[in-house]
Design a protein around this nucleic acid. Structure first.
Lengths: 138, 138
DNA sequence: GTCCCTGCAAACGTTTTGCACACAG
DNA sequence: CTGTGTGCAAAACGTTTGCAGGGAC
């Protein structure tokens, strides 16, 4: 399980300062940033990064299969660099915190297939995280 | 299992011609329209419907719990009026066709809960529908 | 040296909002 | 009659694109 940057180097991906910073910002588990968050964090490291480059790079990485797009109720797309380990998501309905989790894929019963050929399953556990659980005593 | 319009009447929901048409357009199973599709179909029935009213009404219905927002990979939100029967979704990765399906909820193992209190589970089966399955013979 | 990545700003599609008027209750 | 739903147009928001210049290989 190589880090993202190493995988990109091995692919002979054209590496500029901007693209390296973006890849570094995206590295890790439980990372599910919006494009704008990637932009902010990249810019904090390297001011010479533009929004357009962030969007271009994110789309390129998604196309290469090095990044997943995750849909997160609010309109904005989020990006998940954890492409090597099949996982699902646990999301806090209050603060939006999102963790990678391992859980069995549910199966679609025969009678419910409607002739479709199932390719994969996405599961999102909607939950309340420890910081957002209301305190019992008032 | 009352139809949407009946439920809305029972709630004393202020009923105008526009809102009635919008509610009618949304009725049924396997209905997952975008805001703009709701707008188009409503306007075909009643030309005196504006985009703003469609958006206002959709948001109100979501807030009332009479409509679910479904996230559908592409940026646009879709609206699902099937709020009475717990169900998951089967989506064609090619044409985007979306059906309601019944399947068991997966369980999140103890060791994966991270202290979260799970409220509900959303499952999306990504698949290829019969119309989009590539033909074997070339 | 070549090709493609880059920043900027403008364009885009979707959703929201401010306002005066209209209508359901 | 009153409160709130309405259309319109403009704005907001996230994202994409066109273009001239620059840097990786």
């Amino acid at each position: 399980m190589q880090p993202l940057l190493t995988r990109l180097r091995n692919r002979q991906w054209r590496l500029t300062a901007q693209r390296r910073v973006i890849a570094e910002v995206l590295a890790g588990e439980h990372v599910h940033l919006t494009a704008d968050e990637v932009f902010e964090r990249s810019r904090a490291i390297l001011p010479e990064v533009s929004r357009a480059t962030v969007y271009n790079t994110l789309n390129e990485l998604v196309g290469m299969g090095e990044l997943f797009e995750v849909t997160h109720v609010d309109g904005r797309k989020r990006y998940d660099p954890n492409v090597e380990e099949r996982h699902h998501h646990l999301v806090c309905v209050d603060c939006g915190r999102m963790l990678d989790v391992l859980a069995d894929d549910p199966r679609l019963p025969e009678g419910q297939q409607h002739g479709f050929e199932v390719l994969r399953v996405e599961v999102t556990f909607r939950a309340r995280c420890p910081d957002c659980v209301p305190v019992a005593t008032v």
